[in-house]
C-alpha cells in the first residue's frame, strides 16, 4: 500500500469497492429510484412513496394505508403471517421433495433418512409440520379477526367468500400432507378423516373412492394425495390468494376504523 499502513489500506480499498459497486450501472439497474439500497437515496415523502410504487411490492401494498391499520392490535398481522407461512411451507416443502418418494414402503424409509442422513433434514421436516399446524391456526384466527371487525361487509362480501375457500384449502393441504409420512399416525388419522367423507348422503361411496383412489386407503392413495399436496392444491390456492390480495386493495384496503 502506498501509505505503508497495510490494514488501513485494505479497509479503504474495501470501502472504495463498496461505494463503487453501489454507484455502478448494474446496482442501479437492480434497485429502482427511491429504493433505500441506492447510494443516491434520501429520506423524503416522495422517496417513501417510491419504495413501494417503484417496486414489485406495489402488487401487495398501496403507497399509503390508514393510520389505524398499522396498529399491531388491529390485525395482529394474522393474514400476513398466514401468507408468510405459506411461502415458508413452499420452501421447506420443495426441500423435502428432493428426498421423498410417494410409494410404499419407500416413503416411510425416506422420512427416517431425513432424520438421520440428510443435512438439516429433520429440522426442515419439523418446520414443515409445525408450520402447517400454525398456519391452520393463523388462518382461522385471521377469519375471526375479520369477523369481529365486520370487515366482510360491503364492498368486501366476496373477499370473505374467497377467504372461506382459502380456509378450506388450507385444511385440505394440511390433511393431504398428513398421510405422506406413511406411519401409523398418518394412516389411521387419514382413515378416520376420510371415513367421515364416506357418510356423504347418496353418493358417499363415490366420494370415498375419488378421495382415496380406491375402496380403501392403499399405496395408490399415497401417490394421489402427494400430487394433490405438492401441485394441485397449492396451484389453486395461489390463484385464490392472488384474487384475495387484489380484492383487499380494490375494496378499499383495511376496513375500519370501528
Amino acid at each position: 500500500m502506498a501509505d505503508g499502513n497495510g490494514r488501513g489500506g485494505i479497509k479503504e480499498a474495501v470501502a472504495g469497492m463498496g461505494s463503487h459497486l453501489r454507484e455502478s450501472q448494474v446496482w442501479n439497474s437492480i434497485f429502482r429510484p427511491g429504493s433505500p439500497m441506492r447510494s443516491d437515496n434520501s429520506d423524503s415523502p416522495r422517496n417513501r412513496s417510491y419504495v413501494v410504487m417503484n417496486n414489485v411490492l406495489y402488487h401487495l401494498h398501496p403507497v399509503k394505508v390508514k393510520r389505524h391499520g398499522v396498529r399491531i392490535s388491529y390485525t395482529l398481522c394474522l393474514g400476513g403471517l398466514s401468507f408468510f407461512l405459506f411461502i415458508l411451507l413452499t420452501i421447506t416443502g420443495i426441500f423435502l421433495m428432493f428426498y421423498y418418494r410417494p410409494t410404499s414402503p419407500q416413503a416411510y424409509f425416506d422420512l427416517q433418512a431425513l432424520g438421520s442422513d440428510v443435512a438439516f433434514g429433520q429440522l426442515v421436516r419439523n418446520m414443515h409440520r409445525w408450520g402447517a399446524h400454525i398456519m391452520v391456526l393463523t388462518v382461522f384466527l385471521h377469519m375471526s379477526r375479520v369477523f369481529y371487525h365486520g370487515a366482510y361487509k360491503p364492498p368486501r362480501e366476496f373477499n370473505w367468500v374467497v377467504g372461506i375457500i382459502l380456509l378450506l384449502f388450507t385444511l385440505l393441504l394440511s390433511f393431504t400432507g398428513y398421510l405422506l409420512p406413511w406411519d401409523q399416525l398418518a394412516l389411521w388419522a387419514v382413515t378416520v378423516g376420510s371415513n367421515m367423507a364416506g357418510y356423504t348422503p347418496v353418493f358417499g361411496e363415490q366420494v370415498t373412492f375419488a378421495l382415496v383412489g380406491g375402496i380403501q386407503i392403499t399405496a395408490d392413495t399415497l401417490l394421489r394425495w402427494y400430487v394433490l399436496h405438492v401441485l394441485f392444491l397449492p396451484f389453486i390456492m395461489v390463484i385464490f390468494m392472488a384474487v384475495h390480495f387484489w380484492r383487499v386493495r380494490k375494496d378499499g384496503g383495511l376496513s375500519g376504523p370501528l
Partner: peptide
C-alpha cells in the same frame, strides 16, 4: 423445530388399528 421433532410412529400397518384412532387435530 430445533427442540421438538415431528412425530414418526411405526410403519403403516393396515392390520393393527391403534386405540384410539384420532383424526388430525383440526
Amino acid at each position: 423445530s430445533a427442540f421438538v421433532d415431528a412425530p414418526l410412529l411405526e410403519f403403516a400397518n393396515f392390520n393393527q388399528q391403534p386405540n384410539p384412532s384420532k383424526a388430525p387435530w383440526y
